[in-house]
Nucleic acid binder design. Structure first.
Length: 222
DNA sequence: CTGACGATTCACT
DNA sequence: GTGAATCGTCAGC
């Protein structure tokens, strides 16, 4: 099996800052969250905070399917100060604190009042690696830099203060640089850490690029 | 107001 | 494989 190692894939600043490449509202507003979660693989998540540009190609996502999904914060229509962000229109950032330590970044999808969200679980650095290393306190680049949702946010500088931010703004956005993610290299599997969700824990709502070293867990080769 | 806990990570055995 | 870290959120009183 061919291993997709994008490790050395660097992207120019010009492309990362191109408005034309930015995913727009129509991408996020769609109804089928599984399609969007799959299509986000291979897209590039870009952040620019205090003029520090960092970017990573998405390698792993998880869909949280709104009010019918027992794994979702918005299950059964739950509305709180925190989850209210999930009810915003597609193309909004939903960031929350997990275990008091980790800031997890989600992409809100669908239309207003339909609380769909896609967790970005892993990505492969393509720009601003020095900045990412500084943010994470690491000295060398390896897959731990952006493998796992807490690590992605940390490397890209995303925190809970960015929740509700538009993904069509200047600070956080996702671009399509026409990178080809081949269907046969995409795996769907159950989501991680959602045992509490009863039968919904078994749904194949996690998507990742087969064999990519920037994917959480150990068993990403099959 | 209080207590329980989490869409995790990392160090250690 | 096990356990600690660490705090905002949320249900319940």
């Amino acid at each position: 099996m061919e291993l997709k190692r994008l490790y050395h894939n660097k992207i120019s600043r010009q492309i990362l800052c191109s408005d034309a490449a930015m995913l727009d509202a129509s991408f996020y507003a769609r109804n089928n969250i599984l399609i969007i979660a799959e299509e986000l693989l291979g897209k590039i998540l870009v952040t620019r905070f205090e003029n520090k540009l960092t970017a990573a190609r998405i390698t792993e996502t998880e869909a949280y399917n709104g009010i019918v999904d027992k794994a979702s914060h918005a299950y059964n229509g739950r509305r709180t100060n925190r989850t209210e962000i999930m009810y915003k229109p597609g193309g909004t950032a939903y960031v929350y604190l997990c275990y008091g330590i980790h800031h997890l970044f989600d992409v809100v999808t669908n239309v207003q009042n339909v609380p769909h969200a896609i967790l970005i679980r892993a990505a492969e650095p393509v720009y601003g690696i020095e900045t990412m290393l500084k943010r994470t306190g690491k000295t060398t680049l390896d897959n731990s830099l952006t493998k796992g949702p807490g690590n992605v946010s940390k490397a890209l500088g995303i925190t809970t203060k960015h929740t509700a931010a538009s993904l069509n703004g200047k600070e956080i956005y996702i671009i399509d640089d026409n990178f080809q993610t081949y269907k046969e290299s995409i795996i769907a599997s159950p989501r991680i850490g959602v045992d509490y969700a009863a039968e919904d824990a078994l749904l194949p709502y996690r998507f990742y690029i087969k064999g990519n070293p920037f994917v959480s867990g150990k068993n990403n080769l099959k």
